[in-house]
């Protein structure tokens, strides 16, 4: 009882960090439920991942099959459905990632599992699992409970916690693939790499980042002027890229780039978790936003709560004066 299973996520020759984050959380939960931490790895010739997972798990179940060379949610669903029915975990954790959100809801429907998506933390009260999630883009938290019987299923938000040290030495058990044949109705074709732009923002020392608060394309010269005096490159949140103000190569966040500049000025960015994950490694963060509750302020070193259109022109002017 109380066993916590974690689906290992990997892509293009890389074990994804969210896997170790989940195993770290799973160890904390299993420590309270008295269960084991079990990593489930579906892949082809990825023995090195299996070994690494052992450092964070009590057991590693490894299906080594060419059918799992590339991710395909339909194949994963079939395999996991069979494994969950066989091993009956208390909790199955899948990353709240582009792989996980493509998989978990359908799996939950198929097996009629109690399912909570985008969990950021799991409390254990009287032996019962109480997932925590967020509403309204981080402005409200919600305590959830499962009803009915396990197995329970969650997707777990990436970058919610720091990965611990490998403290376990779980053995790797190669198991037979529950998937006996390929899936015909959904086919993986290829990966297409990100566009390369004129500036590599992952190498920038100073970044001026814009978000929804900048409102319109015609306001961008205001930002460009500031960036010029700061000798900064310009990047943005998803909203700025979706609106077409900047190219995709300038997007900061989980679906864009992860940046670590010396200075990051977030202008009109509320700070969705996907954005924060991409920029919280910056050495110094300045946030300018008129909403005092904007999550961006949780990562900021300096904050200005005000109308950016009143602050930015003066900031540019003063910087010109000080640096001129």
């Amino acid at each position: 009882m109380g066993n916590v299973y974690v689906l290992a996520e990997h892509r293009q020759g890389e074990l994804r960090e969210v896997t170790l984050e989940m195993l770290t959380k799973a160890a904390a939960v299993a420590g309270q439920t008295g269960g084991e931490v079990v990593a489930v790895l579906l892949g082809s010739g990825v023995d090195s991942y299996a070994e690494k997972l052992g450092g964070f798990s009590d057991r590693v179940l490894y299906v080594d099959d060419p059918l799992f060379a590339d991710y395909n949610s339909e194949k994963y669903q079939k395999a996991l459905a069979a494994l969950i029915q066989e091993y009956k975990p208390e909790l199955m954790m899948i990353g709240h990632t582009t792989q996980g959100v493509d998989l978990a809801p359908a799996l939950a429907v198929e097996l009629k599992l109690p399912f909570i998506p985008d969990v950021i933390d799991i409390n254990v009260e009287d032996g019962k699992l109480k997932p925590v999630r967020q509403y309204y883009q981080g402005k409200v938290n919600a305590n959830f409970a499962f009803k009915g019987e396990p197995p329970y299923l969650i997707t777990f938000r990436e970058a919610s916690l720091e990965v611990g040290e490998p403290a376990k030495s779980g053995g790797v058990e190669k198991i037979d693939s529950p998937l006996k044949e390929d899936i015909a109705y959904r086919r993986f074709i290829e990966y297409v790499e990100a566009e390369v732009g004129d500036v590599d923002i992952t190498q920038s020392e100073i970044l001026v980042a814009v978000g929804r608060g900048v409102k319109e394309d015609k306001n961008m010269p205001l930002i460009e002027e500031l960036a010029a005096v700061m000798k900064a490159d310009i990047c943005g949140s998803r909203a700025a890229i979706d609106a077409g103000w900047l190219g995709h190569d300038r997007q900061v966040g989980t679906s864009g780039k992860t940046v670590k500049p010396k200075l990051y000025i977030a202008i009109g960015i509320s700070g969705a978790f996907q954005h924060l994950a991409g920029m919280k490694g910056a050495k110094t963060i300045v946030a300018i936003n008129k909403d005092p509750d904007a999550p961006i302020f949780t990562e900021a070193d300096f904050g200005i709560v005000d109308d950016l259109f009143k602050v930015i022109p003066k900031l540019t002017e003063k910087l010109k004066e000080l640096k001129g």
């Binding site: 991710y71 582009t98 792989q99 086919r187 074709i189 990966y191 297409v192 790499e193 190569d249 780039k257």
Partner: peptide, 10 residues
């Protein structure tokens, strides 16, 4: 996908 990569699926 994460990191600006796309996965093409049919």
């Amino acid at each position: 996908l994460e990191g600006g990569v796309s996965e093409v699926v049919e």
